[in-house]
Amino acid sequence: MTQLPLDGVRIIAVEQYGAGPYGSMYLADLGAEVIKIENPAIGGDVSRQTGPFFIGENDSYFYQTFNVNKKSLTLNLKSAEGRKVFEELVKTADAVTNNLRGDQPQKLGITYEQLKQVNPKIVCGHLSAYGRDNDRASWPGYDYLMQAEAGLMSLTGEPDQAPTRFGVSMVDFMTGAVASLGLIAGILGAHRTGQGRDVDVSLFDVALHQLSYPATWYLNEQHVVQRVARSAHPATVPCQLYKTQDSFVFLMAMTDKFWDVLVDILDDDVLKEPRFAHVASRRENRDVLTAEIDRVLSAHSTAHWLEILKGRIPCAPVYDVPQALNNQYIRDIGMVHSVPHPHNQDMEILANPIKLDGQRLTGKAAVAMGTDTQSILEELGYSEQEISRLSQNKVV
């Protein structure tokens, strides 16, 4: 792919760990030059030392997951000389993005108000736990806390069990993606008007926004969505896990049309009864219907039913992680991506889900800390002697 849509866009990323790096990686994959700032005094991004699996010195598979296609510049932003280098870089950039605690961007001098004299077109993206404009600005915060307070845990799991978090940090990932969308919108506006701005996104706001229609139902009708057994949809039936002879299958006959097709395939007299004929009546008879569908599906294995139902009824097997990643389908569609690393030439990661002109985006492994420091400083006009002095002073 010779031309990516964000070719020529330069983004400075003051980021670490998950949410921020996940979002900026989308931009790097799409062609943006993402320059990751790493503090040499602390060994760079903390996720370089996030185990249990490491790959070479000061690198990990966790770090590789969120940082492919980026450059690495070591720089101490809190030093006077480091600040000077940073401002020289800002002059050449389209955006500065960070995922610091809400009170930190102001202290570090990376808001639009503090950088607009350096570059009036700069867009400053801020991804924090609770935002920068309220009494929680200084609070640290993590994904799981947001799932808890925003009500998401209350909707997850079996009804007779404790509230449950998602299996992975979905709030981090959603917030990273939303932050990158906001940043690109800001850059587009700045290119049109010549004026940058601040763009703020918080973990809490995004988590709360994911309540979506249960929130609208409650805000307007005071309806409280409850957890339903077997991970069922709160309103549409059948849409849940059902027992087969050897495991479970997830069926989603979300409309009367799909229900009619399912009944025709299963060819069972009880399922054909009028009490199950429509969405509302199926919802009223959910428990009875669950038992009847279990009865029919238990006659055969999950593989048998998937072969019969595939492409006709929305359905899926329930895989564990090894089964999901050993599924031939994900390799057929190119979702497993080979990214050679100096310490593992066969390293594989999941590919970016965005396709351009029908093609998957490609990538290069995340580089060692400071790999691009020399070339970036030279581009900014620093001499060999000046770079050596900055290194000796632990600025870079």
Rank of each mutant, 00 (worst) to 15 (best):
Q147H: 12
N69G: 06
L100Y: 15
Y61G: 05
T164G: 09
T74I: 03
M146E: 05
D135N: 12
N69F: 05
R136N: 12
A148I: 11
Q147A: 15
F166D: 10
Y63R: 02
L155H: 05
D103F: 01
N99V: 00
S169R: 15
D103V: 02
Q64V: 05
G125V: 01
Q147K: 15
I122H: 07
W139P: 04
K121W: 06
L115H: 03
P140Q: 09
Y142S: 05
A162P: 07
F66P: 00
M153Y: 11
N76D: 09
L145S: 15
A177E: 11
A129G: 15
E88H: 12
L127S: 03
L75Y: 00
G167Y: 04
L100S: 15
Q114A: 05
W139K: 14
Y130A: 07
K107S: 08
P140T: 08
K71E: 01
L145C: 11
K71C: 08
S72H: 04
N119F: 01
G157M: 02
G157T: 00
A95Q: 12
K84D: 14
T65H: 08
G102C: 12
Y112K: 03
N98Y: 09
A80I: 08
G151W: 06
Y130I: 07
T164I: 04
V85F: 09
K84Q: 14
Y112L: 03
K70Q: 04
M153T: 13
F66M: 07
G157Q: 03
V96T: 00
H126E: 07
V85P: 03
K91V: 00
D160M: 01
I110M: 10
L100M: 15
P105K: 05
L115Y: 06
E81V: 01
E57W: 03
T97F: 14
V118E: 12
P163F: 13
K71L: 12
W139F: 15
V96I: 09
E158R: 06
V85K: 09
V90Q: 13
M153Q: 09
P105I: 02
T156L: 11
P105N: 09
M170L: 13
E87L: 15
S154D: 14
C124H: 06
P159D: 13
E149P: 12
Q117L: 01
G151E: 10
Q161I: 03
Y63T: 02
D172G: 07
D59R: 01
L145W: 11
N98W: 02
A148P: 02
T97V: 14
G151Q: 07
F86C: 01
F166K: 13
S60E: 04
N58L: 03
K78C: 06
K91P: 07
A129D: 01
E81R: 09
E158P: 00
L127H: 02
Q161Y: 13
F66I: 04
G176C: 11
L77H: 02
E81H: 10
P159S: 09
K70E: 00
T74R: 08
A162M: 06
P159H: 12
R132W: 05
E149L: 15
L77N: 06
Q117Y: 06
L77M: 12
T74Q: 13
Q117A: 11
T111R: 01
L127G: 02
V68I: 15
T74N: 11
S79H: 08
K116R: 05
E81G: 10
K107R: 15
L152A: 07
D94F: 05
K71G: 05
A129L: 04
R83F: 00
R83G: 13
L89K: 03
K107C: 04
F166A: 14
S169D: 14
A177P: 10
T74D: 09
T156Q: 11
